[in-house]
Amino acid sequence: MSADNALTLEQKQAGIFTVSASPHMLSNESIPKIMWTVVIALLPAVIFGMVIFGGGAVQTVLLCVISAMVFEAMVLKIRKRRICINDGSAFLTGLLLAMCLPADVPFYLPIVGSFIAIVVAKHSMGGLGYNIFNPAHVGRAALVLSWPVAMTTWTPMTYSVDTVSSATPLGVLKLQGYDAVVQMFGGQADMYKDLFFGFRGGCLGETSVLLLVLGGIFLIYKGYIDWVVPVTMIGTVGVLTWAFGGSVGLFSGDPLFHMMAGGLIIGAFFMATDMVTSPITKKGKIIFAFGCGAITVLIRLIGGYPEGVCYSILLMNSVTPLIDRLCKVPSQKRRVA
């Protein structure tokens, strides 16, 4: 064999080759990519919230996001981990927390909420991937328990056209009944319209059904959330409130109102689909989403709070490991593929 064609010794030795198990080719999927994509999906609803609730909303969002990232960096430093706050997970937690707060909360609430979300709910459990409960919802739940008045003082919309009250539709429903809600919006058609587009009182990021659903569809298209979760959860709420939500016997409730009111849309698309805290198999996800929907309705119709999405998701988070044990593999049928 001619020498020029053979490999030189140098070339051979250059190959101190990497030896590892297959596969030797990976997709470009990554955790930061997922986190920032979810942030992008939330942005329209956040910006809408800032527009209709004004400067207080901007301040709350900034405080939540910045403090979440600062706490994340501090905890990672204390835990002697690589500081990777640009992976977007702390940003996302801060953003979701802000979206579940009234716009004009005192400045210390977002900071305390972020502390509880990042330090207590996330890192005390072991950090990203190990937390049992959705950090943003733990933060919100702690704030509701500690500052019940501040957390239910709703900001009036910057340009209220036909509504004067800043109360949330579900709050009015709890205290004054369904007719008062319709009256507040000035008619049933107007009520559905305002709920759909988001012209109503509530937490700063939860109001616009339209923008949240669009963001959710974007994530479903991207493959980052499974459509069965929002469909099952919202569907369960719809069916149960239709059946038991009315004042004149069975099947007299208003499912459309319940499906669009409160934090259900943001919860179903962005909280119940949180990868870390929800089951991994499709069957498990359906059980999880059904549970979230059922508990939400229980709290809304029977419980003391007007809204139950946050607590229902937290309660179902706690049984996620059990659901995962129940649905270990996708399904027997598929296993014989």
Binding site: L128, G129, Y224, M275, V276, T281, K285
Partner: peptide
């Protein structure tokens, strides 16, 4: 890094 249970 730790599994985030994304289910992919």
């Amino acid at each position: 890094s730790p599994c985030i249970h994304c289910g992919k």
